[in-house]
Design a protein around this nucleic acid. Structure first.
Lengths: 106, 106
DNA sequence: GCCGCTAAATGTATACTGCACTTAGATGTA
DNA sequence: TACATCTAAGTGCAGTATACATTTAGCGGC
């Protein structure tokens, strides 16, 4: 679920295609291995109506790209999922804190 | 993996049994639904040598409890898993920050 | 005997993930 | 022409994780 949200957050910033999303994700520190599962995840996201895709045949060089754009439902999903993400982050913080690891909140 | 770590962190504080671990987890905000998967997870942890268990037949009232104690290997596992947990926490933070959500670090 | 609480365990179905592999357009080069 | 390389998307499969429901069982109270 947090991976779906990660993708939606990026799509919320701007429409993007799978290959680029993989790069953007790894640049913000999210496991690059997600790359391989990316396309399947994007298909799921579209099937659930959280985003729409169109083929971009216009760019020069390389094969066509499938550009994903977040939908209203995607925005809504993201907003509703936020408390759960916060909970997950706080749970990780709690575990790390109990193990004596200083959190970012110091 | 983070769930295994959550359990190990609690066991590191003191030996505990499944039912109690479920309560302790939900008290620090970790999904109570973990409760149902708890026993299987604890079996896995023991099978991997990260903890040992003994039956506690002494307590008055109620059925016997299986008390888990963290092992050396468990401590080591936890120490080695910490960077990954930190990475996961930071990834969640990054996603939340991009969605405009203030992190605990403010 | 029956109910409710504690405690552990199992059964089953589905979702997630990782890893490897395949397809295919565009470009460069020997 | 043949071949290699980069970009981009997609598929197959095996293993793991997760959720949800159900089962077994000791003990105490009514």
């Amino acid at each position: 679920m947090s991976r779906v949200c990660a993708l939606l957050v990026l799509l919320r910033e701007r429409p993007s295609h799978g290959y680029e999303l993989a790069e953007r994700l790894s640049s913000i520190g999210i496991d690059a291995r997600l790359g391989q599962s990316m396309y399947r995840l994007l298909h799921d996201i579209e099937r659930q109506g959280l985003a729409q895709s169109t083929w971009d045949l216009s760019q020069s060089g390389g094969p066509p790209r499938r550009i994903y754009t977040i939908s209203e439902a995607g925005e809504k999903f993201l907003a509703e999922a936020t408390p759960e993400l916060v909970r997950q982050r706080d749970a990780l913080d709690a575990v790390l804190a109990r193990f004596g690891h200083r959190s970012a909140a110091g």
